[in-house]
Design a protein around this nucleic acid. Structure first.
Lengths: 240, 240
DNA sequence: GATTTTTATTTTGCATGCAAAAAACCCGGT
DNA sequence: ACCGGGTTTTTTGCATGCAAAATAAAAATC
C-alpha cells in the first residue's frame, strides 16, 4: 500500500540526531508527532513555525507540510491565519474516541483469535505475566509499557494494517492523557483482571468473547482517563 | 458536500468567485479528494503537480500540502522523488478495509439505537422504502444514492464525530470501487433483505442486533466489491 | 537494428521572498 | 491607573527560485 516511509522504528531513540531520513516532511511528521504525543508540546500550545524550523534545521515548506498532515490526523488544530495549535482533548473527545477504539480493538481481538499461533499465545502470556509482576510492584511506567505492548501485539497478530493504522492514530491522540492517568488502586486491579480475561480468551481462541472483553476493557479505560483528566483540570484550575 | 465552481484562480484578473474557503490548501484537499473519489483520476495514475496547479490556479506550495494530507489519508501514495500516485485498491486492501468499516458501522448502529428518535426512525423508514422502490425498478444509481444516505444518516444519529470521520475516510477510499460495482441480481436481493433487517432492528432499538446485521451487511458488500473488482481487472486484462 | 551510453528536459523537493493578517507595542485620552 | 486608536514587529500563507533526481530523448556502440 503506501509505506513510502518505512525507514525506521522510532522506538526508544530520543537522540536529537540530525535529520537524514527518506524525505524531510516524512521525517518531520514523525518527529513532530513524537513531540506532541510524548507531551513535550502541551495541548493548547501554539506551534511556533520559525522556532521548530531552526530546531530541526529545515525551512518552513516541509515543516508546514508536516503540520498539515498532523492536523489531518487530529493532533493539531489549524487556526486560519493563526497557525497551528496542539489539539487538546475535551471530555467529549474522549467519550467519542474510546468507543471507536473499543470497536477497533474488538475487531482486532476477533481477527487475532482466528490467526494466533501457539508461539504467539506463549509470547503474549509472557508479556502478561511480566506486566502482572510490575503491577504487584506498583511500577506504573513499566506496567504501562507492557500493557501497550500486549495491545500492539494483538493488533499485529490480527494482521490488518488498515486496522492498525486507524487504531494507532486514535491511540496517539489519547496517549498523553493515558500516560498521565494515575489509576486508582481499584481501577488498576480491575484492569489487571480484565487482562487475565483477555489472555484466557485469546488462548481459547474465543473471538467473540475476546471482542466483548476488549470492548469493555476500553470502556473502562475511558472512564479512567476521564477521571484523570478531570482531576488534572481540577488541580490546575482549583478555583475556576 | 459543496461543489459548484471549478473555476479559476486568484491572481491574474478580477476574480468573481475565486476560492471561497478558509485557506487554499483546505480547499485543495477537498477538490482533489473529490477528483480522486469520484474517479476522475484513475487509480495508479501519477498526479501531475504542474497541471493541477494551472488547473486550480494556485502555486505548488499549497497543492503539495494538500497532496501530503491526501497521502496521509491513504488516497495517494507518495513515491520518493517521484511525486504522488493515486492509490489503487488491491483485493487485500479491500479485505482489510471492509472489516474495519463493518466494526465502525456496527458501533454506529449500537449508538444510533440508543439515541434514535421516533421521527428519525420514520425518516429512515421513508428513505428505505424509497430505496426499495428504486430496487424494484432496477434503478441502480438512485438505489445507490439512497443506500448511502441511509448509512450516513445512521452515522449522524450515532452522534460520534470521530466515528463518522473514520468511517467516511475509509468509505471514500472504496467509494469508486463500490460505485462501479455491478451487483448481480442475487446480491442485490440479499442487500435489500439486509436493509429490511437493518430498519427493523433500528425501529426496535435493538443495538446488538443492528450491530450484527450491519457487520454482516458490510461483509457481504465486501464480497460484492471484490467480485466487481475481479471482473474489472479480468476484462481489462483478459490474457494476463 | 537493438542496446547501451550520453545528453537534454522535465519534475520533484526544498529554500527563500513577499504581501497580508495578527500579535505586540506605543501613546494619548479619560 | 485604564482603555482605544494607531503604529511597528512578528507571523502566516502563498508564490517563486534553484539544485538534484528522474524521465525522455538523442547519440554512439555493438
Amino acid at each position: 500500500m503506501n509505506d513510502a516511509n518505512l525507514a525506521e522504528r522510532p522506538g526508544s531513540d530520543a537522540a536529537p540526531a540530525p535529520i537524514q531520513r527518506a524525505s524531510l516532511h516524512d521525517e518531520l511528521v514523525e518527529r513532530l508527532r513524537d513531540l506532541i504525543v510524548e507531551g513535550e508540546m502541551a495541548p493548547g500550545t501554539r506551534v511556533p513555525e520559525r522556532e521548530l524550523c531552526t530546531r530541526f534545521g529545515v525551512s518552513r515548506t516541509p515543516l508546514r507540510e508536516a503540520l498539515k498532515v498532523l492536523a489531518s490526523e487530529g493532533l493539531l488544530a489549524l487556526l486560519p491565519n493563526r497557525g497551528a495549535q496542539v489539539a487538546s482533548l475535551t471530555l467529549a473527545d474522549i467519550d467519542e474516541m474510546f468507543p471507536v477504539m473499543g470497536a477497533l480493538e474488538a475487531l482486532a481481538g476477533e481477527l487475532a483469535c482466528a490467526r494466533v499461533t501457539d508461539e504467539e499465545i506463549a509470547e503474549i502470556r509472557a508479556l502478561h505475566y511480566q506486566m502482572v509482576l510490575h503491577y504487584t510492584r506498583r511500577e506504573l511506567p513499566e506496567y504501562f509499557r507492557l500493557n501497550q505492548r500486549i495491545h500492539e501485539r494483538i493488533l499485529e497478530i490480527a494482521g490488518n494494517a488498515t486496522l492498525t493504522r486507524m487504531y494507532t492514530g486514535l491511540a496517539g491522540r489519547v496517549r498523553r492523557a493515558r500516560y498521565v492517568a494515575n489509576m486508582s488502586g481499584a481501577r488498576w486491579d480491575h484492569a489487571v483482571e480484565e487482562h487475565e480475561a483477555i489472555l484466557d480468551a485469546l488462548a481459547l481462541r474465543d473471538g467473540p468473547r475476546l471482542a466483548r472483553i476488549l470492548k469493555l476493557h476500553l470502556a473502562n479505560k475511558c472512564e479512567t482517563v476521564k477521571d484523570s483528566l478531570l482531576a488534572e483540570t481540577a488541580s490546575s484550575k482549583p478555583a475556576g
